Amino acid sequence: MTPLAIAEHAPLFIVLNPASGRGEADNARRSIESACAQAGREHHIYQVDRHRRLQPCVQEAVERAKAVQGVVVAAGGDGTINAVAQATLGSGCAFGVLPQGTFNYFSRTHGIPTDTDEAMRVLLNEQPRAVQVGQVNDRVFLVNASLGLYAQLLEDREAYKAQFGRRRWVALWSALLTALRGHRPWYLHLSWHGVQRDIRTKTLFVANNALQLHQVGLPEADAPEQGQLAAIALKPLSTLSMLGLLVSGARGRLGEADSVVSFPFESMTVRPMRGHRRVKVATDGEIGWCAMPLEFRVSPEPLWLVRPAVAPELEATRQ
């Protein structure tokens, strides 16, 4: 694979979403402008608001970056990063991230600091490195994709955040409430690498993030670093057992649970065994409808992310 290089003074085209994460867009904008001014770096900021929606901002940033071999940058949470990555993948442009979200798994996995000033130093001084992208049908995911209970959990989380604010405790509390409610299981037929399997599950979760997998303690944690994705399915559980599973995940011991089925793969087809021509799928926290069957795979081309050579937080999980 031929590395993608960027010019020392390649202009930055930054999509800034003030609705993401902690809502500190003004501070982030000041940090961006100050760092670019000190470095003498040309930059253009496309700030999302009620007059300028996310997708038009993303498309304009990518088109302008392609014309001058610039860097497309996402400043926001996982949803914003996903949208910008989707448009940047295959464009020939380098990709940068200024994380503004709640958990920031993508940036943390790749050694990009959550502090905007520090993240700007990475963006202005490092070179692009290839990172793996997951796809489900025509949708990109950098962290995870899911259907069933986990997708419902994310949908409920956004409703709670709209009411109580974008804080970690709100996300965790909403996850607990969703998990405790009754949910009908899904009947799915999975096929991957010549293997066929019928499963009954409340959720199917496909991960593309080593840090997240290490934190919950799954044996497939390094699959995303080895050119694979990791599938996780939960067998139907009682409310009490579901609470126990949440505790196991929080303690980093999810892989020890008998109710968890997990395996690595490069491509997998998921078909419904009962009805369901369309299904809600969450990709990096954003909910959308996908037609069945679902085709999960590792993208044949990487995303060229401006990042350090070493990601300290990920390395620490392996010690």
Results as ranks from 00 to 15, higher is better:
R168P: 01
V122R: 06
L154Q: 09
R157Y: 08
A61N: 01
D78K: 01
A162S: 15
A130K: 09
F95M: 00
R139F: 05
Q55K: 11
Q152K: 15
Q86P: 08
R108I: 08
G77A: 12
R53H: 14
V72E: 05
R139M: 08
D117K: 12
H110E: 11
A75V: 11
C57K: 03
H110M: 14
E155G: 12
V133E: 08
T109D: 14
N137M: 07
T80I: 08
R166D: 04
P56T: 03
H51I: 04
Y160A: 15
F141S: 06
R50S: 15
R129I: 07
D78F: 02
R41H: 09
Q47K: 13
Q135W: 10
D138C: 13
C36Q: 02
V71A: 05
R64Q: 14
G79H: 01
R129Y: 03
F141K: 09
F141V: 09
Q55G: 00
V97G: 01
G70D: 01
V84Q: 03
Y46D: 04
Q163Y: 00
A74L: 06
A87Y: 00
C57M: 06
L149F: 14
E60S: 13
V84M: 03
V62D: 00
R41K: 11
V72D: 02
N27H: 12
Y150R: 05
Q55Y: 02
A65G: 12
D156G: 02
P128K: 07
R53P: 05
I45V: 15
F141H: 12
L153K: 04
T102V: 05
E33C: 04
